[in-house]
Design a protein around this nucleic acid. Structure first.
Lengths: 314, 314
DNA sequence: CTGTTAGCGCATTCAA
DNA sequence: TTGAATGCGCTAACAG
């Protein structure tokens, strides 16, 4: 990194006015090809890098989107983030990422910081008692993931679908005794919606329901497992791969190789360790892409509020 | 978000000059407490947010650090990133995060983008054939993690220590037949250094070495396992938790509950699934913190090149 | 202590 | 098609 070159230095070096250089930078068509070529040449040779800060200030857009996720080490979220990055990077944006750690307060702080930075838009990963009010103020400049709201564009997971997919799979195999292990219904999406999907499936197919809910951890599922393992149990549907892990472990200890387990999350580790197992893919990566595409579309003028639901797949 | 308020609006509203407002913003001590109070009052009530873009342009510092990691879904890296975020956020910086995907080319592109953005500093997670040359140009504005270099400050993991810790643990338990599963030595750190540590330990303690190296995946370790499992084997040290997972799985199939396995990474999942197992913690989180602290110290004028090695622990 | 002035690097008028 | 001039929002001299 040599001295900070400015647009003026380039102008002098190329023997043109600084606005001409600016035009080249902004791809203004009103530049004689020759001139453009010469300027680009100089830019290349000098290693000049236009200052985004200045551009941001001038143009109003910093070409940055903020991403607020609950935890960086959440596999679901970082799969989605990878999808987001692909898309926004393609569109010339960069990302500043922050962790809410499931705190509404932190989320708001981050939101404030992001505003200060003049970010063009924000993508927020929702969590149980996420405070949407401050996000709503951003209107079309925000997209939320995995959260229910009308006022703001969102990409949701198909909480019903992920469970139905697993249930159908087992039922097609002729299984009639299917248990369920989930998380506490106080969590609207992963908790309540998935449990309801299970219960509805049971009703629809005349299956006697048998379920337990608890924390979103291996240990919790491991402990809950015994309560849903009956002699006639043929399969256990779990609300997430983490839970499936705990259940599968217990089954292995009990030598119940006859019982199949399903999870949600598409973790390759699950079926590697426990072969009698499969996982539904809620489409985290695509959800990330969709949310990013949605945001960019909105930043480009399409101000309609849109709600997408990510298709799940086996 | 109401209309974009500027520092001038606040000045008028507070009945002071705009520089006074600026002084309040920058915490300049030379402001009469009264005046400061009044200005802060107005700022609060109006919901004014100073534009970072403008501040960045003016002051040269955008208060942003760039983080280039190889993969967002690497547990080791995102543990480290969480450490980094804690520290830099504390210091008033924000992070723009990018993925190199183990590509030197992408890394360079990202570096260029980050420069354009006037980031104050950069933290880069190294990988096998990481091209350091462009990072070196940043001098004291960069810190690399997990990579060997003299010219630039770095935080490294104690590749020798992580293996020695595991070996010592087994040896203290009186085990004499300890095998090793690692990754290809073409990878300098996780591959070569850890293998060498194993071999040295063997020599020092008069243990007959028995090892295999391959890819950094469960499958690879699973396949390699048979080659290092002898009748008299008492323990298997693995270069990472991922590998330990594969090895433990194979042991379970073989019913070799007599053999203990160790990994590196502090993944809680490992010992949850395979009780006869433990993991060495290379200190990812602290390494992240250290690197961030190091970077900030350097951004504040301390231009010495420093090399830190993160202590591992059981 | 505080107001006034002058740029920071760039994109965009307006003339030429 | 191009150059000169203007101002974005802010900080840092410089005077009061």
């Amino acid at each position: 990194m040599t001295q900070k070159l400015t647009i003026l230095d380039i102008a002098k070096l190329a023997g043109v006015g600084k606005s001409t250089v600016s035009r080249v930078l902004t791809n203004d068509p009103k530049v004689k090809p020759e001139t453009r070529e010469k300027v680009e040449q100089v830019i290349r040779e000098s290693g000049y890098v236009p200052s985004k800060s200045a551009q941001a200030m001038r143009g109003g857009s910093a070409k940055v989107v903020g991403i607020i996720l609950s935890r960086l080490d959440s596999t679901s979220e970082n799969k989605a983030v990878r999808g987001i990055l692909e898309v926004i990077y393609q569109a010339g944006y960069d990302a500043v990422i922050m962790e809410s750690q499931f705190s509404a307060e932190k989320t708001n702080e981050h939101l404030a910081v992001l505003q200060k930075r003049n970010v063009d838009g924000v993508i927020v990963f929702g969590f149980s008692d996420c405070d949407l009010s401050s996000i709503e103020k951003l209107k079309h400049k925000a997209v939320v993931i995995a959260v229910d709201t009308d006022s703001i564009s969102s990409v949701g997971y198909d909480n019903q679908g992920v469970i139905e997919l697993a249930m159908n799979h087992f039922i097609e195999q002729g299984k009639q005794n299917i248990s369920y292990v989930g998380v506490d219904p106080s969590d609207k999406t992963t908790g309540l919606m998935r449990l309801n999907a299970y219960l509805e499936c049971c009703q629809r197919f005349g299956i006697e329901s048998c379920y337990q809910t608890g924390q979103l951890s291996h240990e919790s599922a491991y402990q809950l497992a015994d309560d849903v393992i009956k002699t006639k149990t043929q399969a256990i549907v779990c609300a997430s791969d983490t839970l499936a892990m705990g259940v599968a472990k217990r089954l292995q200890e009990l030598n119940r190789t006859d019982i199949q387990v399903s999870g949600v999350g598409a973790t390759d580790l699950l079926s590697f360790i426990y072969p009698n197992t499969f996982s539904i893919d809620p489409g985290y990566h695509q959800a990330g892409q969709s949310s990013a595409n949605l945001l960019i579309k909105q930043l480009n003028g399409q101000h309609e509020v849109t709600h997408l639901t990510q298709q799940a797949s086996l």
